[in-house]
Design a protein around this nucleic acid. Structure first.
Length: 159
DNA sequence: GCCAACGTTGGC
DNA sequence: GCCAACGTTGGC
């Protein structure tokens, strides 16, 4: 198995949890993912030190706002067990948890965000299969290739 | 606020 | 296993 670091993109609504929030707290458990594909990426794909593009969705200018890194291996999302949480899942038990998360550590804010509109302009280079701009894609955790990572960050100074 | 696209649930 | 109904995501 390759030991090279992998790359990911993780979405958050800034009203919920922003790159500034992450900068403030340093490290944050990525709670609340309730999509199986996104869960599988965290549980089965992520390793400590992997790079993360921090993406703001549901905001004036959706796009990449910062860089973070995976700071833990996957473990059960505690919110699935808390009745008072909006992420409570009555079908999850301590013995057979359904939802997993990783801790995410702040690396840096981008000098300027890379807006989704600019990312779309590079769709052909990023590839049809890139989940961020695939039609109708709503994945909140998705893999990014090394080439895509490099291209996306090269746009940092062009926006 | 609208709504297209997609995932999940549950009846059958 | 099918699929209608429903809920959610997320750009605009």
């Amino acid at each position: 198995m390759s030991t090279r670091k992998r790359h990911w993109l993780m979405k958050s609504e800034p009203e919920d949890f922003s790159i500034d929030d992450l900068a403030r707290v340093g490290t944050e458990p990525w709670t609340g993912v309730r999509n199986y594909q996104a869960r599988n990426f965290m549980r089965d794909g992520m390793r400590i030190g992997d790079g993360v593009l921090f993406y703001h969705s549901n905001t004036d200018v959706p796009g990449i706002y910062g860089i973070a890194e995976v700071a833990s291996t996957a473990y059960p999302d505690p919110s699935q067990f808390k009745k008072s949480s909006k992420y409570f899942d009555e079908k999850a038990t301590q013995e057979t948890p359904r939802w997993f998360l990783v801790d995410v550590r702040f690396a840096r804010k981008l000098d300027a965000p890379v807006p989704l509109s600019l990312i779309r302009e590079h769709a052909s280079e990023l590839g049809e299969e890139f989940a961020l701009i695939r039609k109708g894609a709503r994945l909140s955790v998705l893999p990014v290739t090394a080439a895509q990572w490099k291209l996306l960050l090269s746009l940092e100074t062009k926006s």
